[in-house]
């Protein structure tokens, strides 16, 4: 067995393992950029995973399942949006409640789908790109859902930094008072961002039940929603860095599994700890106010907005 192909395959695996986290993290990034923290990612992902699977199983059409998963994630996030934006409820508590609720709903409704196979997304090699050396193996020999994320990353970057709505989102997350004074609809912007977060979390969940595996199992996210939350911070609220963070996280997992497969013993728990330690360190290094502004930590994160208070 040669080393070089294995390295390429490991990098390809990093992309695959990072994809469900990437979906959810991009969504959470939007919500947080607008100033709303949503700790319910895990719950939204689970509902997305189940609804995507249910729909695909019933219709035999994974794209329909994907659509349903996105819608389901959006619906669940609507609860959070209504509570925290309209009713100005505590975002931390509401997010935690959302995770409990999503775990419950998906587990309860998912009972009849345990141990039932369904067709999901098949691996689909992209024609021209897939044959490219290096890049082809790493990026273009996956399933369609992976390809869906590639345009999302620059799209989110462009949206956030180069368009009016993006500016509004950042303004609302940074200083809702000033945004409001400029005539930006704070509530509407936040609603849209939280719902986008739900949509993408739903897709991230569906990646697990439609692409990575083709099955539904209770709690099958196994903590990926919480990892997505960490990745948003690790990527300092920037779509490109968040994507890198998700791939890095996927890469650590892909690499450690392959090193094990080659017979190398690893201190797994210490290894799993490193991304979190690293995230805190990144933040410490990037603390100066100027740096903070540049990396774009939303100053109003977690704070409900009420006009004139």
């Amino acid at each position: 067995m040669e080393l070089w192909p294995l390295i390429l395959l490991t990098l390809a695996a990093a992309v695959r393992a990072g994809t469900p986290i990437l979906f959810a993290a991009l969504g959470e990034l939007m919500a947080e950029r607008s100033g709303v923290l949503n700790l319910g990612v895990e719950g939204m992902m689970l509902v997305g995973a189940l609804v995507g699977f249910m729909t695909t199983q019933k219709t035999g059409e994974p794209w329909l399942g994907l659509l349903a998963a996105g819608l389901a994630g959006t619906m669940v996030s609507l609860i959070h949006a209504f509570l925290t934006i309209t009713l100005r409820a505590n975002q931390v508590v509401s997010g935690l409640a959302l995770t409990i609720f999503g775990t419950g709903v998906s587990g309860f409704l998912g009972k009849p789908y345990i141990g039932v196979p369904a067709e999901g997304f098949p691996p689909t090699r992209v024609s021209v790109f897939g044959d490219l050396p290096l890049v082809g193996t790493i990026f273009f020999q996956h399933d369609p859902m992976v390809y869906l994320t590639y345009p999302l990353i620059p799209l989110f970057w462009f949206l956030l930094y180069r368009t009016r709505p993006g500016l509004n989102v950042r303004a609302v997350g940074e200083s809702p008072e000033s945004a409001d004074a400029m005539g930006v609809g704070v509530a509407l912007t936040r609603y849209l961002c939280v719902l986008a977060g739900g949509l993408l979390a739903g897709l991230g969940g569906a990646y697990l039940s439609l692409a990575y595996t083709h099955m539904w199992i209770e709690n099958m996210t196994a903590g990926r929603g919480w990892i997505a939350l960490a990745i948003v911070i690790f990527g300092t609220w920037d779509p490109v860095r968040v994507a890198l963070g998700a791939y890095l996280f996927g890469g650590v997992q892909a690499l450690q599994l392959r090193l094990q497969a080659l017979g190398v013993g690893l201190p797994t728990y210490l290894l799993m700890m490193t991304p979190y330690v690293f995230t805190v360190l990144v933040l410490v290094v990037a603390t100066r106010e100027t740096v903070r502004r540049r990396i774009g930590a939303p100053a109003a994160l977690g704070i409900p907005y009420a006009r004139g208070e």
């Binding site: 209504f82 009713l87 409820a89 505590n90 409990i100 609720f101 999503g102 709903v105 309860f108 009972k111």
Partner: peptide
């Protein structure tokens, strides 16, 4: 199943959260 307990917990929290706002507004 235990998931029903989670659903009820979530619902109760949602309502408490929703009503909480009335204390200040």
């Amino acid at each position: 199943p235990v998931t029903m307990t989670y659903i009820l917990q979530g619902l109760i929290l949602f309502f408490v959260l929703g009503m909480e706002v009335l204390s200040g507004y």
